[in-house]
Design a binder for these strands. Structure first.
Lengths: 119, 119
DNA sequence: TCCTTTGTGTTAATTAACTAATACAAGTAT
DNA sequence: ATACTTGTATTAGTTAATTAACACAAAGGA
């Protein structure tokens, strides 16, 4: 688990994002157990409380579920994950379009710009 | 000059962004004088130092030029403004594509998604 | 039964990010 | 010449965000 330490985003958010993406993309399988708070803390060289805070956010989203003394698990509910994926997608696209509109750039221009852009 | 006070972005960045966009878009004409630090502070109900900080950033970009005791002016150099516009454009697009790739979404998909999106 | 592992709650420490107060410096106009 | 307006530097205050320390709670296995 590597982080973008160049970022000035708080650790707990970076961890939360990484995990969320791993869930969305399927690196962490549905229903599977994720490493314990302390294990993740070791892996990421952070404090367990920092990890805890990340996971609380993901739990609020319904992505993970806590079984008190045996660990935390990815939800079994595929729909929740799909919904979350869509939420992130929408947020990202909407913000992008707003940013572009502020610059007086239309959607048509965006599309042609994207087509030119190598990547 | 209104601000998105809902945002948790620092004031000085919000002010800087607003001004930068107004320059890019042409609301502030090339070579023209912008209001004094104190005037902007009054308009935005902020402290002159906060405004100063915003303007320093824009000056580092070359967008504005200070004439010590008579005020600050938009650069005469059209190319600088165009270059800055392009820089912002590129940053915005690149970040967007990176975000999307993290979600395993290809550029082709982005384009079709954009076409669907009403706005 | 007791030790280990799990999550969690509370509180404190730290840091740093912003904003503001204030005084100074240097032109400009009256 | 003097007062006004401009930008700027330095410093302090304030607040909030983040991280860490530590102790507690509960289940499960040796």
């Amino acid at each position: 688990m590597d982080f973008d330490f160049n970022s000035n985003e708080p650790l707990y958010k970076q961890i939360a994002k990484q995990l969320a993406i791993q869930i969305i993309v399927g690196t962490y399988k549905i229903g599977s157990r994720i490493p314990s708070v302390r294990e993740i803390a070791l892996l990421t060289k952070t404090n367990p409380n920092t990890v805890q805070r990340s996971l609380t956010e993901l739990e609020e989203e319904g992505l993970i579920i806590t079984k008190r003394t045996s660990g935390k698990f990815i939800t079994e509910d595929k729909a929740i994950i799909e919904k979350y994926r869509h939420k992130i997608l929408k947020e990202t696209v909407d913000k992008f379009i707003i940013d572009m509109n502020k610059l007086n750039i239309t959607k048509a221009e965006i599309i042609s710009y994207l087509k030119e852009n190598k990547q």
